[in-house]
């Protein structure tokens, strides 16, 4: 029993680290543009499809990663240039609808690349396993988790330690102030979006390695929004906590749910919806998350 719980928690940590990487794209964009990029799920899907096509053409996983990163960055910059920038200063609903339009377009491109539908298949297969007492970890788990955590760490380090990262943070914090110091605000904003695309591409490979490529891949990214909200939309390093908590909650729900039965309602399988419940509860009770800055704005 306890052993079961431990292995559920460990797999929650694995998928949670992938959630963190998937959510990173939302946070980077939110910091710099104060908007949610609803095209991100399709961007991740597109990057995963490109990576899959590269791998299945025999180019190897490294080439797949490179292709995913390139496509992710290009798509993200395109969304910034064609949608986010012209819509600056317009009400959120316009940006939401326009990025949802971009979501459709990117999804259409991924389906077109797959020949009419999202291809299904695995990106990386290996029979190798690591046994730690009762917990068994496959090679895909370890690869996905390390790629995901590496992505978050790299972005956090870039933001913290490099001068270009500091400049990006400055633009995110106060665009007018940054412009007054002579920083190229537009270029740095575009760069931040590109970074979000790169993170999306890497996360796409991680999730495709962990959960295989399938049409429901984008659902993971929508669920990752819960991780973003849990951590707070304007944090970067905190996203790891949000992702891990979300992953563990989901797995624990998966463990507990089959035993729960309220009247005729059977809760088996409820873990699929658990992330949305977390999202709703966070928004109701702690909208700015664990590490986010609270904006006092009450009506």
């Amino acid at each position: 029993m306890a052993v079961d719980v431990v292995s559920y928690i460990v797999s929650g940590l694995i998928i949670g680290s992938v959630y963190a990487a998937l959510a990173l794209g939302f946070n980077i964009v939110y910091r710099v543009s104060k908007s949610i990029n609803f095209a991100h799920p399709a961007l991740v899907l597109l990057a995963a499809v490109v990576a899959y096509l590269a791998v299945s053409s025999g180019a190897g996983l490294a080439a797949g990663v490179a292709a995913a990163v390139a496509v992710g960055a290009a798509a993200s910059v395109a969304v910034e240039r064609l949608i986010a920038r012209p819509l600056q200063g317009r009400p959120p609903v316009s940006l939401i609808a326009a990025t949802l339009g971009a979501y459709y377009v990117l999804k259409g491109v991924s389906m077109w690349l797959g020949g009419g539908s999202i291809p299904q298949g695995s990106l990386y297969a290996s029979g190798w396993t690591l046994r730690l007492g009762p917990v068994v970890l496959g090679a895909t788990d370890l690869l996905a988790a390390s790629l995901a955590l590496g992505t978050v760490a790299a972005v956090a380090a870039l933001h913290r330690f490099t001068s270009i990262g500091v400049a990006m943070r400055a633009v995110a914090e106060d665009a007018y102030g940054a412009a007054a110091y002579g920083l190229p605000v537009r270029r740095l904003t575009a760069l931040s979006w590109a970074l979000a695309g790169v993170a999306g591409g890497l996360a796409a490979v991680a999730i495709a390695v962990k959960a295989n490529l399938s049409p429901i891949l984008e659902a993971y990214v929508i669920k990752a929004l819960a991780a973003s909200l849990l951590a707070g939309l304007d944090t970067v390093a905190g996203i790891v906590v949000g992702g891990l908590v979300l992953g563990v909650i989901e797995q624990l729900v998966m463990y507990v749910a089959p035993m729960v039965k309220i009247g005729p309602l059977d809760f088996a399988g409820f873990h699929e919806a658990a992330a949305y419940l977390v999202m709703l509860l966070v928004l109701l009770f702690k909208p700015y998350g664990l590490f986010g800055t609270e904006r006092v704005e009450r009506v």
């Binding site: 012209p86 316009s94 990025t99 339009g101 971009a102 459709y104 377009v105 009419g116 539908s117």
Partner: peptide, 19 residues
């Protein structure tokens, strides 16, 4: 009934109109 063009053209039309 090929959904690819629905996504591509509809999405582009929505984004274009909103912008």
């Amino acid at each position: 009934g090929n959904p690819v063009y629905r996504y591509l053209l509809l999405g582009a039309a929505i984004a274009f109109f909103v912008v």
